[in-house]
Simulated assay, not measured.
Amino acid sequence: MTTTAGHTGPVLVASDLDRTLIYSRAALDLTMPDTKAPRLLCVEIYEGKPLSFMTETAAALLPELAVRTVFVPTTTRTRKQYQRIQLPGPASKFAICANGGHLLVDGVSDPDWHRGVTRRLAEECAPLAEIRSHLTSVADPSWLRKERVAEDLFAYLVVERELLPEGWAKELSDWAEPRGWTVSLQGRKIYAVPKPLTKSAAMREVARRTGARLTLAAGDSLLDADLLEAADHGWQPGHGELADSGRHAPHVTALTRRGVVAGEEIIRGFLERAATVAV
């Protein structure tokens, strides 16, 4: 964990975005009657269409969180994908993109951080070209919709989830693991990510630069597991890979709420925990 005993620095909040704080229409999981559904605010437009949402209550709470803490949006998205998001409140000084491959400072990638990451990947993992070649060779055109490389750091597939053969992702994971790569299935995307490419490493760097006395984190997928384990306290929603696996560390709160309302509960949790820390 990243706390510095006796330190008087700020509280740092590093939160995953997709399916943690913001939600696509397919991930909203609004199971209540329509008349009881929360009002939503669109926070991302893509190709002229609304793509991602928060509840209006969550959107109203987020600016307060950004003022009271060092709020660090933390995502597997590329920088370009991240920049489409318009979160309420002041712009964050720090953001973590590409699963830790880029540390943004005032919107600009820190070149020294990125060079250090790429050097470590070259030393410890099978090359991206090998992983990408295998992905395309074992994917079936009947369910594969797109194959992409993100920031020259990792690869992912966009698939028709209902047509994906049972066990296919597990077989891919078994193949990738000894090559130093991790596989994560999130919605319609299958990610292949180098093991050293982590959100937690970037969070620790922000904690070092800011002198944070307490680190809080949230996330829903296996790619968020290291982030949650590295924080002093974490939250995970009642959906996603982590919830499905039943996995959570003792200092991580496993919520039962699912979908966009879980995002609202996570922000409340951040605020309540930050309030317990003396200014």
Score class of each variant (00 low, 15 high):
residue 180 G to S: 07
residue 110 D to K: 06
residue 130 E to V: 14
residue 82 Y to A: 00
residue 121 L to I: 13
residue 2 T to F: 11
residue 265 E to I: 08
residue 257 R to Q: 15
residue 139 A to R: 10
residue 258 R to C: 05
residue 72 V to M: 00
residue 198 T to V: 08
residue 27 A to K: 09
residue 153 L to T: 05
residue 252 V to H: 07
residue 195 K to S: 12
residue 177 E to S: 14
residue 107 G to C: 12
residue 147 E to G: 14
residue 217 A to M: 05
residue 200 S to T: 01
residue 258 R to M: 00
residue 220 D to Y: 04
residue 185 L to H: 05
residue 59 A to G: 08
residue 38 P to C: 11
residue 9 G to A: 01
residue 262 A to P: 00
residue 97 C to N: 11
residue 215 T to I: 07
residue 226 D to W: 01
residue 64 E to V: 12
residue 205 E to F: 00
residue 159 V to P: 09
residue 210 T to F: 02
residue 25 R to P: 03
residue 163 L to I: 02
residue 269 G to Q: 06
residue 24 S to M: 01
residue 63 P to T: 10
residue 31 T to Y: 07
residue 41 L to K: 09
residue 176 A to S: 03
residue 149 V to W: 00
residue 139 A to E: 13
residue 175 W to G: 08
residue 110 D to V: 09
residue 141 P to H: 12
residue 208 R to H: 05
residue 172 L to T: 03
residue 231 A to N: 08
residue 155 A to F: 06
residue 274 A to Q: 10
residue 114 H to I: 05
residue 175 W to C: 09
residue 89 G to Y: 04
residue 152 D to V: 03
residue 185 L to V: 11
residue 12 L to S: 13
residue 11 V to K: 07
residue 62 L to C: 09
residue 220 D to G: 01
residue 196 P to V: 03
residue 178 P to V: 10
residue 65 L to P: 01
residue 146 K to H: 04
residue 158 V to N: 09
residue 12 L to I: 14
residue 232 D to T: 11
residue 266 I to S: 00
residue 204 R to D: 05
residue 216 L to C: 02
residue 95 A to R: 02
residue 39 R to D: 08
residue 46 Y to F: 11
residue 68 R to G: 01
residue 105 V to L: 10
residue 124 E to P: 05
residue 129 A to R: 11
residue 200 S to P: 00
residue 184 S to N: 13
residue 252 V to F: 00
residue 246 G to I: 11
residue 279 V to W: 13
residue 19 R to E: 11
residue 54 M to N: 10
residue 130 E to Q: 14
residue 147 E to R: 08
residue 129 A to G: 05
residue 96 I to L: 07
residue 50 P to N: 04
residue 91 A to L: 02
residue 248 H to G: 10
residue 112 D to Q: 14
residue 123 E to L: 08
